[in-house]
Write a protein that binds this DNA or RNA. Sequence first.
DNA 1: CCATTTATACTCTCCTTGAGCATAAGATGG
DNA 2: CCATCTTATGCTCAAGGAGAGTATAAATGG
Lengths: 319, 319
Amino acid sequence: MARSPQKKASAPASGNAVTADLVAVLVAVTDGTPKIVTIAGGSALPSGPFEFTHRSLQTALRAWVEAQTGHPLGYVEQLYTFADRGRSGDAKSPHSVSISYLGLTREDKVGEGFEAHWSGWYDYFPWEDHRAGAPACLAKIIAPQLKAWAKAASSPTLQRERWQRCAITFGLDDRDWNEELVLQRYELLWEASLIPEAGRAHGRDAPVVPGKPMTADHRRILATGIARLRAKIKYRPVVFELMPAEFTLLQLQRSVEALAGRLVHKQNFRRLIEQQELVEETGAMAADTVGRPAKLFRFRHAVLAERAVAGTKLPLSRT
Amino acid sequence: MARSPQKKASAPASGNAVTADLVAVLVAVTDGTPKIVTIAGGSALPSGPFEFTHRSLQTALRAWVEAQTGHPLGYVEQLYTFADRGRSGDAKSPHSVSISYLGLTREDKVGEGFEAHWSGWYDYFPWEDHRAGAPACLAKIIAPQLKAWAKAASSPTLQRERWQRCAITFGLDDRDWNEELVLQRYELLWEASLIPEAGRAHGRDAPVVPGKPMTADHRRILATGIARLRAKIKYRPVVFELMPAEFTLLQLQRSVEALAGRLVHKQNFRRLIEQQELVEETGAMAADTVGRPAKLFRFRHAVLAERAVAGTKLPLSRT
DNA sequence: CCATTTATACTCTCCTTGAGCATAAGATGG
DNA sequence: CCATCTTATGCTCAAGGAGAGTATAAATGG
């Protein structure tokens, strides 16, 4: 337990040595697929020890990613810090604080000859992609398993409460799907022992929920990152960090949809983008297109000064 | 720099020992004043080393605060993790990672005989309280200083950019005040060397911006906490963590206004609270009141199940 | 020319939000 | 008892925004 304040003022105490790790969720969107940098065959997020030769965590993360990709990292945001005991599964390992970050780039910026590569994030969370309607695995696998878990509660009241939580979190029983609840959904599946990482004693069957697992709590960190990004794109112009220099409005829309995991109304999307003056025409038209050619746009960097701080909006509001 | 991923998988590395500190922003609202727990005569936030006898950071923080106040801590949320080198100002001190938390309680829950006591948070950020209109210090002191700082930039373009940032962030030049930009405002004042903690070489005058300073970066952490809370009350029912069991709608409104630092339209506030069914009547009426007696309400804890996750709203939207 | 695909311009309705008016129900001082 | 002050509470209204649909334009490949 931390000492109580009357015993000390504010100087940091010594002793209590731990190690500090950085874990990064590095996102890109290519052809309507949100991707993340993974290592170890897609079973882990890139991570490494933080070294204090840097002025700050942010600096360290940028330097690390730049060394890996050869390009500066666009948007960076701290996600969460974990310090759970035995986090690595080994109770004897030194205690470690893991500081996770979300970073946005473009896929083409990854350097050569690295173990790291890009994996689609829906490989890890297949139930999160609702662009073609609710995924089959939701109704066929997840909902029944959650129902069974709810039924297994000790009292009828608890059973009802459990199921209500499941229904709200996963949009079951005709409730609306809320794409921002990525972390809550993952944690609920964990609680119900439907996630391999939960590693509890299971009955006859191993957990059957689809989705690729990851080392330690990396999938939880990824869930945190996805949730944060899905929330962020609605009020900050961060999507543009994931776009090429020039793009059509449909490409932009597809990227937003890829991240949010749901479709948006095309005309309304354009209306919002244009009325906020987030983009400007380049004058050129898209070349390789099917159908009527679209104008090419570029991000108006001026808005970063005008409203980086003031907020923007995308048509992804709760219904 | 962190090692690049191709050299390692995901097991935490040893070496690189640091210490982990917890720093807490513990908030209560009494009589329309938002307060925080401070130590050292109000010059620091409560902080202490994290010990790994706890399962998680959250657990450690709760235990620590409970030991101090004798009551469980209501809402807890992680704020940010700092690991800046020389954070404590002493380059030779062991490197330390500071993990900050926001916690909500009630003032009456503080135990006896502790150095810790409550300080009004506007003592540290006088320019953040706009309930009685824009504070005088904004126009009289801050705006001129910022203007001088902007003028001091090397080129006309830079000068304009600086001033535009100032105007947006502080709502100058007839712009709207955005109460959520607490951290950006503090950082801008820091950048302009108008904050004692910035500790740069100053000209003839010491910085003159009003507001009590704090040790190290504690005031920055407090700014982060205020900003987070101001954002949060708009879409999560967290205000109730700060209210007594029974309250009138006006009391609730005053608490929201205290946190947000701005007034809200009374009738619209009630409309929103009631139509979301956040509260229920207790049947009793407020006793010690002036004017027509108000009904007493209590928080409907059912909404935590119904929509803890789904979101709520308060009439504090951007205009 | 046709169907098909995508782009782009409008329209329409419903709901939310900000704001104000009006009335009710207490206390207080004369 | 009345006038006045203060707070509570109910109701209306107008403007703007969001969701959804219609219509037309511009390209492609038969």
